[in-house]
Each structure stands twice: as structure tokens, then as C-alpha cells.
Computed example of a mutant assay.
Amino acid sequence: MKKVIQLIILTVIITSCHQEPSLKGYNGADSFMEEEIAPITRQASVAPPPPPAPPITTKEIIKKKIIKDGRIGVKVSDLKLAKARVDSLVENHKAYYSNEKLNNTDWESSYNLTIRIPSSTFEGFITAIERTKGEILYKEIDARDVTDQFIDLETRLQNKRAYLKRYQDLLKKAQTIKEILAIEEKIRRLEEEIESTTGRLKYLGDLVDYSTLRLNIRKQKEFKYNPAQRDKFSERIKQSLSKGWFGFIDFLLLLTKFWPFWIIGLLIIYFYRKIKRKKALTK
């Protein structure tokens, strides 16, 4: 009996001794797994970094296209000096005269000037005119925004050029004469439209780059009576006699033109008198 009990105790001890390494290994594996998993769980708990900011797109800034025109009238005391002053301003501002007209009457002398001025110096030119010695009679400045027209024309021009390129490519692939003639007609029309649109853009560009100023500078004069010169009395007598004689000749020629009426009148008078005589004889 004792041997049986000792055998059971020995079996339990041996079994417990064999189980301790496995527990220790399990605990070690758990600690190893905890070390491996812990960083992953910690990384998962951290918020993800924000997405990269979208690239900044800068819109193309469209430069305004402004056409400026002006009209100014100035009354001065010295027209020659004022004109020299304007000439100097034109040269300094790199402007030019597109039209220049001088009027000289008994009442006043004046210059009508049409000046093309670079738009960047237009306001400075106007200010300089206002500072000249003289009286401003009138002033009118207009500004027109043609930016939309520019954009529209440039867009049309770009599209027409793209269509022209396509038709030119089609022309290279055309095989029949009918196709070639049809494509060439399209190309001809597109080239005319492109030329017209380009000319319109250049015209608007010139109006934008150079502003127009119509300047009138005038000087009043003291009125002086200037009688018209007359010929001598003898010369006037000769002219009167000559004009009278030619008038008489013209009158005779006028009467001669009516010779058929003279004949008809004489016939009427002749028959009238003849009838009157017959009536007198019958009585």
C-alpha cells in the first residue's frame, strides 16, 4: 500500500516538473508577442497624417484693355507760345500728331490738334495741358473697357487657327478632286476670317496702346474792319459799259431764240386784221 502511495506522489511530482517549463515558455511567448504587437497597436492608435495639400493654382490675371479718348479746349493769350508748349509735351511724352489744322479769321486764330498719346502717359499729358497758361473752355474724357472684345476675338482666332490646321491635314489626305476643291474653299474662307480678326485685334490694340486727345487752342482777336479793295473809277466805268453792252447782246440773243413765236404772233395779227376788214366791208 505504501508503495502505491509513493508511486502516485512520485508521478505527481514528475508531472509538475514537466509542466513548469511549458508555462514558462508560454509566458515568454506571450511577452514576445506583446513586444511585437504593442508597436502595431500603438501606431494604430495614433491619428494618420493629414493628406498633402493640393497644389496652388494661380489664375491668369487678365489685363484690362481700356480705350481712352479726350477733348479739351483752351483759350490762350499767346497762340504761338501755347503751340510751342504743346509741341514740347508731345515730344516729351513720345506722342505724335495725327492731324493738325490752323484756322485764322478776323475774330480769332486757333489750332485744332489730334494727338495720339501712349496710354501710360495720357493722364500726365492732360495734367500738363491743364497747367498751361490759359482758360479751360471745356474738357471731356471717355474710357471704354474692351477687355471682353479682346478675349472674344482672341478665342475666335485661336479656334479658327485650330480648324485651319485640321483642314490642312485633311487636304494632305484628300484623294479626289472634289474633296480637294471643297477643303481648299474651307481653307480660303478660314484664312480670310483669320486675317480679318487679326486686323481687328491690331486696331483695338492700337486704340488701347495710344489714347486720342482732340485739343483746341485759340486766341481771340480785336475786330478790325478791313474794307475790300475797289478798282479805280475809270476802271469801274469801263467795266459798267462793257457789262451793259454784253447785257444788250445777251438780250438780243434771247429774243432771237424765240423767233418761232414771233412768226406765230405776226400771223395771228395778220389774220385778225383781215377778218376785221371783212366785217367792216359787210357793214
Rank of each mutant, 00 (worst) to 15 (best):
Leu81Cys: 05
Asp78Lys: 05
Thr15Gly: 10
Glu185Ile: 08
Ile115Ser: 04
Ile183Asn: 05
Ala44Phe: 12
Lys83Ala: 13
Ile117Leu: 06
Lys178Ile: 06
Lys232Gly: 15
Lys165Asn: 14
Ile14Asn: 04
Arg273Cys: 09
Lys75Thr: 08
Met1Cys: 07
Thr121Asp: 10
Ser240Gly: 02
Ile263Asn: 08
Met33Asn: 14
Ala29Trp: 12
Ser211Glu: 05
Leu254Met: 10
Phe248Tyr: 14
Ser45Met: 09
Leu241Gln: 11
Thr132Ser: 09
Asp145Ser: 07
Glu34Cys: 05
Thr127Cys: 00
Arg42Cys: 02
Ile180Phe: 03
Arg166Phe: 11
Pro227Tyr: 01
Arg236Ser: 04
Pro260Leu: 03
Lys224His: 06
Gly124Leu: 06
Lys165Cys: 04
Glu235Gln: 14
Trp262Ser: 12
Ala280Pro: 00
Leu7Glu: 09
Arg161Asp: 04
Glu191Gly: 00
Arg214Ala: 12
Ser242Trp: 09
Ile249Phe: 08
Ala162Ser: 13
Glu154Arg: 15
Ala47Asn: 08
Asp106Tyr: 05
Val146Thr: 02
Glu222Met: 07
Gly70Lys: 04
Ile269Thr: 12
Met33Gly: 07
Glu60Ile: 13
Ala174Ser: 15
Trp259Tyr: 15
Lys65Cys: 08
Arg218Ile: 09
Gly205Thr: 00
Arg236Gly: 01
Asp231Glu: 10
Ile263Ser: 11
Phe233Asn: 06
Thr198Gly: 05
Glu185Ser: 13
Val76Ala: 07
Leu253Ala: 14
Lys186Thr: 02
Pro49Thr: 07
Thr11Phe: 10
Leu252Cys: 10
Lys279Asn: 10
Leu213Glu: 05
Ser22Trp: 08
Glu60Pro: 02
Gly205Arg: 07
Ile115Lys: 01
Leu253His: 09
Lys202Arg: 12
Ile13Leu: 14
Glu36Ala: 12
Leu253Asn: 15
Ile56Cys: 06
Ile61Asp: 13
Ser211Asn: 05
Arg236Pro: 00
Ile264Leu: 13
Gln229Lys: 13
Asp87Ala: 09
Thr57Ser: 03
Val76Pro: 03
Pro51Thr: 05
Asp206Tyr: 05
Leu102Ala: 14
Lys283Phe: 05
Val208Trp: 03
Asp78Gly: 07
Lys186Arg: 14
Tyr26Val: 00
Asp152Thr: 14
Val46Trp: 03
Lys101Thr: 15
Ser119Cys: 02
Arg214Ile: 09
Ile40Cys: 06
Arg71Ser: 14
Lys165His: 11
Leu267Glu: 11
Trp107Ala: 15
His93Pro: 03
Leu102Gly: 06
